[in-house]
Design a protein around this nucleic acid. Sequence first.
DNA 1: TGTGACATATAAGTCTGACTTTTTGTTCCC
DNA 2: GGGAACAAAAAGTCAGACTTATATGTCACA
Lengths: 233, 233
Amino acid sequence: MSTPGRGLHGRVLDTLGPAITAGEYPPGSILRTDELAQHFEVSRSVMREAVRVLESMHLVESRRRVGVTVRPRCEWNVYDPQVIRWRLAGADRPHQLRSLTVLRSAIEPVAAGLTARLATAEQCAELTECALGMVAHSRGHRLREYLFHDVAFHRVILSASGNEMFARLGDVVAEVLTGRTRHEVMFEDPDPAAVTLHVQVAEAVRARDAVRAEELTRQITVGALQELDILAP
Amino acid sequence: MSTPGRGLHGRVLDTLGPAITAGEYPPGSILRTDELAQHFEVSRSVMREAVRVLESMHLVESRRRVGVTVRPRCEWNVYDPQVIRWRLAGADRPHQLRSLTVLRSAIEPVAAGLTARLATAEQCAELTECALGMVAHSRGHRLREYLFHDVAFHRVILSASGNEMFARLGDVVAEVLTGRTRHEVMFEDPDPAAVTLHVQVAEAVRARDAVRAEELTRQITVGALQELDILAP
DNA sequence: TGTGACATATAAGTCTGACTTTTTGTTCCC
DNA sequence: GGGAACAAAAAGTCAGACTTATATGTCACA
């Protein structure tokens, strides 16, 4: 899913990024470029590039005569896919997973409503195909195939909504769904009710019933919230 | 609001970032580090740092023997505050404003619902204070003071929701509200109905009525959508 | 004792030039 | 025509010298 570090500075980020997002360097910590460069055995130029990237993510702030100080979490660019991946890979995973699931619960229903209005015939077909794929693999421990169609389904919903901000969350949702299947809940076959809801959403979109598509999708996300013991509306 | 370029590489980004996000270099365009460095009259090291930042925003991709190629918009990190600012400052402004307003319409109602459940007494008071401030300046062309309280109101809603992803959208909402007052609609006093809704939201939160807070906030965002002639649910 | 100006040390910032590595496109031979 | 060897191009890396901003300590003076 994620691209392993392109170039030397990327290699550095692959270990420094997770370390910072994991809180290994608490907010206010001061790092020095030279020391980091020595520690990672790279030149200062490479280290500086890495720091610049961290800075653009608002993970750190670089100031003359002071050093590179770690910013408090509330200032981080928490929508940066890289930051999300780092956090999902570290100790922050449960917390991050909750945040993202709540975010999903806000976005996806609205996206589904827009998709019902704007989706092309092709997108409608694609959606139905995904839903049917989920049904086809909903029994007999075919979780991998089920997940594939589940991810595709939500990607289509987000993408067909016509809103670029929604569309860009496709990767995030994929990450959440994948993670859920891999580590957390869902050891057995998926909840039949959830499968049915997906089929119904596809039908609602096909029927251009925005209100129904939104409501059904809301039920899907409520289910996702409940899986994580998050109080649902 | 935005921080003007820290350091030389920041100065470069201040003109290169807007240029790219404005589509001045269409997707697939190829830039060369050396040429850019010459053009901006900076050293290659500085130019490289700037490119690294653009790369971390997924605006460009740097490959050996090829150069720095501009990525298609659908791959950009559209949630990066810097990217949002650049787009809002350029020709893409109307489109970006629509995207963000739709995003708001998804997020804020859910955030308000959560805030009604989780807000501290202090946050409830702060919210009421903001709403009253809006009322106080809703007449007599005191748009600046009205805007101040409006922004503060929505910041509290997003922040008190307890979700870091929601909270981080405070700056974005502020930008949208500010932009709306400055350039677009709202030349006269704000819509009295909208003001009333804000007061009612504050009341609902104070009363811990999550459903009502969510519904009222939805009405606020529907109003924002209608202002931009976006079809409301 | 407090306060302001000044000096100093420090770490980031910048520049330059030489070198390496990867990748693409071409050429040449079978 | 296809594949291997070659050459060129552009990013990538490194090392060293220099500049600049600034936090902090010092000292004189009130």
